[in-house]
């Protein structure tokens, strides 16, 4: 018989889905800002592998000449991005959800096995709770990255008022690089996350919207 098994609390789902458009807006407006000084590249042994960003990319997304607009959006939505993140972290800590989310001493080894399994190298999965070991690491890391974005963001937004924070981030110049790199990290996370969600299937996705799993008993 099918039974309902509660999975994700309302606040977890709410903050997750609020974060999705907020982060998208922060990344988009960030691109408008970054364009005005688009100097970052990945260069290996003198060869430029990637340029952030090629002209076709900027043209495609209508990025050029919108610095002021980008700043205005970025410095508006930063508040909601921050508050939503704070809300999530606060709830996760108080509700005890962190117990199923934070990595534990087995997580690293287990995550490796999860990855081997996902790559079809290993047949079995280690035992897991609501989240597997790879998820624990990924979902904790992404929150730390979020905190990193807030900290590096604040460091480059008010580098004089928060000069100690700017110093902590390796100075203004490096803080901007970190802020940008974290954003690239979100984009990579997003793609892997979406692929994993598609592979995991409907029941898993529904749990993130409706909150429950359906299990056969």
């Amino acid at each position: 018989m099918k039974i309902i098994k509660e999975k994700h609390p309302l606040l977890t789902r709410w903050t997750h889905w609020v974060n999705f458009p907020l982060l998208a807006i922060m990344i988009w407006s960030g691109l408008l800002i970054y364009w005005a000084n688009d100097v970052y590249t990945i260069t290996i042994a003198g060869h430029r592998i990637i340029r952030f960003f090629p002209d076709w990319f900027n043209t495609l997304l209508n990025i050029p000449q919108r610095l002021a607009e980008g700043m205005a959006f970025h410095f508006f939505f930063m508040w909601f991005f921050f508050l939503n993140g704070l809300f999530y972290v606060g709830y996760t800590l108080i509700s005890g959800q962190w117990r199923s989310l934070l990595p534990n001493k087995h997580s690293l080894r287990d995550a490796w096995q999860v990855m081997l399994h996902d790559l079809h190298i290993r047949k079995t999965l280690p035992t897991q709770g609501k989240y597997n070991a790879a998820q624990r690491i990924a979902y904790t890391a992404i929150i730390l990255m979020g905190a990193g974005s807030i900290i590096t963001g604040l460091a480059i937004y008010k580098p004089v008022q928060f000069s100690w924070l700017c110093w902590l981030c390796g100075g203004y110049h490096f803080a901007r690089i970190l802020h940008f790199t974290l954003t690239i990290g979100y984009v990579l996370f997003f793609f892997i996350h979406v692929v994993q969600v598609i592979i995991a299937g409907w029941n898993n996705f529904r749990a993130m919207v409706a909150g429950f799993d359906v299990v056969e008993e």
Partner: peptide
């Protein structure tokens, strides 16, 4: 967005101090 910029200004002006020096 202009309204938001002005509101953010008001918030961060509270944190401004002549003791906060540029490095």
């Amino acid at each position: 967005l202009r309204r938001a910029l002005n509101k953010s200004e008001l918030f961060f002006r509270n944190l401004f101090s002549h003791k906060h020096l540029a490095r």
